[in-house]
Simulated assay, not measured.
Amino acid sequence: MSFKIDTKLELEHLHLLVQSLEEMTDFYKTLGLQILNKTANQVEFTIPGNTKPILVLSSNEEVTIRPPRTTGLFHFAILVPSREDLAYVIGNLLNVGVPVTGAGDHIYSEAFYLNDPEGNGIEIYRDRPRSEWISDGRGGLVTGTEAVDIEGVMALYDRNRSWTGLPKGTVLGHIHLNVRVINNATTYFYIDALGLDIMTNFHDSALFISAGGYHHHIAVNTWQGVGAPVPPEQTSGLLSYTLSLSSQEALQKLVENLHTHQIPHTLENGRLRVLDFNNDAMIFYVR
């Protein structure tokens, strides 16, 4: 039987390298995140009322903006608990003038899209109940991009609900990456070595990958062009993303499988570090 990663895997937070720490900090405060810790060169954000980070920003004097048509972060996705919460967040962002650049009904979710000041994509979405997700008959899920019922969503916006930031229960839902190519090496890394499952192959240009039957924790696409280069070091964008496992046994089994499949990795102080195809670090630990 092939190895499967812990079905209780969760995304914890992502770490971005930014050029303007001040401007980006102001933006993410407006977005509804709360500062957890702050130094001269780094800010950790959390969901109001939480004690774990969901986003970390770091900066230094050498950072330049990621060039176009390169690999890296396509977007990170903030999952809110309900459709009412989605209306609450989007309504308040529009009230303060944060532009929403798009929206999509993906069959299993309803999503709105925007960009931060340095061009990092952000998705804010809510999931439909799993009972409403549509199987593709091959162990995966049907997805697409249809028009969101914006009127239906925004009809739930309660103007009397005071803005206190992203609502309780909000989490990092998934990470979506631009990559050079999708091929056998891609599936070997994510499926054979990491033990994840392909939930959707979208026209051979994107894979939606998950643990435990979720629609996706990680997606990869070639929409910046097949063969797009990895950006130079010290350019803005994703540095790492952290995923948590439910037990020490699950972590050890993952380490053993990476060793079996000859995937370079390090394990130090309980944190397993693996580089993905964009040279971004995937960090696994036991929560």
Rank of each mutant, 00 (worst) to 15 (best):
L251T: 11
L243R: 10
S246C: 10
N279Q: 13
G212P: 04
N279E: 03
P229W: 06
E256I: 11
S210Q: 06
T242A: 09
L207T: 14
L275Y: 03
V274C: 00
S210E: 09
H259G: 11
P232T: 14
L258K: 04
P232E: 13
H259L: 12
L238Q: 01
A281V: 02
N269C: 07
Q224L: 03
V274A: 05
S210H: 00
E233P: 03
T235M: 03
T235S: 14
H215L: 07
L258A: 12
H261K: 13
T235V: 09
A228W: 08
R273E: 02
H265E: 10
I209L: 11
G270H: 02
H259K: 15
A228M: 08
H259V: 13
T242S: 12
L267Q: 12
V274G: 02
N279I: 02
Y214V: 00
R273C: 08
T260S: 15
Q224I: 06
E268Y: 13
L254H: 11
V255W: 10
R273D: 05
E233K: 14
G227M: 11
P264T: 06
E256Y: 10
V220S: 04
L258W: 04
A219V: 07
T266K: 08
E256R: 14
S247T: 15
Y241W: 02
T235D: 07
E249G: 05
V226W: 10
N257E: 11
P231I: 02
I263H: 03
N279H: 10
N257Q: 14
L272Q: 06
